[in-house]
Design a protein around this nucleic acid. Sequence first.
DNA 1: ATGGTAGAAGGTCTA
Length: 260
Amino acid sequence: MKIATYNVNSIGAHLTRVLEWFDEARPDIAVLQEIKCVDEKFPAGEFEDRGYNVAVHGQKTYNGVALLSKYPFEEVKKGLPGDEADDHARYIEAMVFPAEAKPVRIAGIYLPNGNPAPGPKYDYKLKWMKRLKARAEELLAFEDAFVLAGDFNVVPQAEDVYDPHEWEGDALYRPETRAAFREILYLGLTDAIRQINPMGVSYTFWDYQRGAWEKDHGLRIDHLLLSPQAADRLKDAGVDRAARGKEKPSDHTPVWAEFR
DNA sequence: ATGGTAGAAGGTCTA
């Protein structure tokens, strides 16, 4: 069973690229971030034609997340609990029922960028991370397999960015950001890419600016965090860099994990 | 030190 995450940077602008990748990679479950459209504008039919069930938590212009699954799912939750005033579409969660394996809960995450830092946007990011930690604690109590997958906008460690020095003050890499990420991870979750490729470079994002892709000035900010029950089933994980090198791509590339 | 690009939108804002 393959679970993937892909920040598409507008599903409308990059639909061809995204469908191309789906037809090659054929994930069983996928979460998308930055669809940048309302529910009605999401091209659900394109995914239904490929055998996916679709759930969308959309928003006009900004953010927006979607969950796609070849297996049926239930208990769809839209929005991260813990702040009634938060109207950003950044979280979608469901319980998925694979045909030949135990159920898996999947959460699609688009964690706030947080720049400029310090400031109100950074405060929002750190609060959002506290709420995510609280949700992870709730899910851990169920003691079943779950995967938190998405664009975390967090560079976990120095080796996850081409030049850590240059990124010291940035909201994606500040010490407080990394500490908040560790708080979530150290609840007992496993970073799938780090687990499979502990020493290697696995960038998932390259800015459109300054020739970042050509110079391989990347960041590893898209992650799949696994509950112990999911980590026990982990077979493989990887980053599909090729998608970033195509014509008119998203600035992120897909990340996936394979489970037995 | 600045601005470089991209997307949604048709203002600038977000990243």
